[in-house]
Design a protein around this nucleic acid. Structure first.
Lengths: 130, 130
DNA sequence: CGTTGACCTTCCCATTGTGGGAAACCCGAT
DNA sequence: ATCGGGTTTCCCACAATGGGAAGGTCAACG
């Protein structure tokens, strides 16, 4: 099948499929006319990549995940380790965002939000000497 | 003072100060020799920017915040609106990351994590037809 | 047979915010 | 005069994705 069809079946845009190939994440056969050609297995790989991206795995992690996936003899410990490492990264980032959100929300709470110019949000941004 | 000193006093790298100038967020005087020259007020602006960045405000938001900050007659409602909009963006992203983290953590929980190759994480990434 | 339209190819550019580094310049101190 | 540390500009890189141009391919339709 063509790249367009593989894209439709996998949910990965043709643009991205080409990009993944460019960075060596996947490969593709070529037809006589230069068109890339994909099979069912390729679509499965693309789906795998998409699911991993849906979980925000960086492409470099996905590269390793793909290698583990293809290696029937891998130790599940390796996969788990990679996954849990990513989970921690996600949670750390989420915690950081939540901290910023709540701190800003507290500031906003003390802001009248009317026509008057006084605004603790601005004075806080201005003032913190930290 | 020079850009290096302004950087040291504001906590914004010289590299970033130049960048902020390049995108029109700030301006700078020039000395006869072409060096940028900063005063106490400039450092205050840079601190303001840094604090806003610490709260993950995008630079475009900061551009508006600076305008509001400089406008003594602004309505605090505008600032509050901008801030709360950002809070929602932060919370949305945090929620999304947390969702991914917990979903992945659940998967990992069912992975033995030993020498055996069976790994629900991989089969899930492979399988989801969603 | 020719054109049209839908697809494919590669290549470049933009995003967001930050950093690295090169080549050249300025200046104070030795 | 020279050395070191600052400064200038300019280009490149990251991660992941999209937009779009210029050109090739092919099937279908008239």
């Amino acid at each position: 099948m063509t790249i367009g069809e593989a894209a439709a079946r996998s949910g990965v845009s043709a643009k991205m499929i080409r990009h993944y190939e460019a960075i060596g994440l996947i490969e593709a056969e070529r037809r006589a006319n230069g068109y890339r050609s994909y099979g069912a297995q390729d679509v499965a790989v693309l789906r795998f990549i998409r699911h991993a991206r849906d979980l925000a795995f960086p492409l470099e992690d996905i590269r390793r995940l793909l290698a583990l996936w293809r290696d029937r003899t891998r130790a599940s410990a390796e996969v788990k380790h990679l996954a849990l490492g990513h989970v921690e990264a996600l949670e750390a980032k989420a915690a950081s965002l939540n901290a910023m959100a709540s701190s800003l929300r507290h500031l906003a709470q003390h802001c009248a939000g009317d026509d008057r110019p006084d605004c603790p949000i601005l004075t806080e941004l201005e003032g913190k000497t930290a």
